[in-house]
Amino acid sequence: MNIYTRMIIVLTSIGLISGAFLAGVGTLTKNRIALNKQREINEAIMTVVSGAQISSKIYEERDLAVYKVNNEENELLGYAVYAGGVGFQDKIYLMFGVNPEITRIYSLTVLEQKETPGLGAKITSEKDFLQFWKNRDCTKEITLHKPAVNSPEQLSPSEVNIITGATISSEAVVNIVNLALEKIRALKNEGKL
């Protein structure tokens, strides 16, 4: 057989067999991967809106999704907002819960981040960062409190604590939240929520 024909036949066969094999693997794992993602979102909703039982996605755009959250008696508890934006090294994706009037943030959790380990990555730490996001007044813009304080009582209602050594990451989270709040308020006024 001509060497060129052989090269073409061998490479094509390897490619075809690999492709078929991967298609199989992809089909087998696809559902599970989607399920993982869904479970992560559901867990986050439960964390940011306490008492959440039923949630449904009511709005989605790039880097923003809004979930309507109801309790067992089907009363509206508020909204869980999934938002993403630029962090220090890569995009940060987070979720926070707000009341139905969008005047109060219940709490916040970070879903995805690639900030510096030990510094910016503290945005996922309850003790260093997340505890200061509980019950914030969001009628005004959320602002950062500098320098860092030790307990949430030392902050005014619309302030959150900064992480020492990770100003950019802290600011990034605040910006993502403020931007998302602005957007969902606009959506609310348009009657889309």
Binding site: F21, L22, T29, I33, N36
Partner: peptide
Amino acid sequence: TVADRFLAAF
């Protein structure tokens, strides 16, 4: 790719 999908799934 198999390893990647497997890790992402499990």
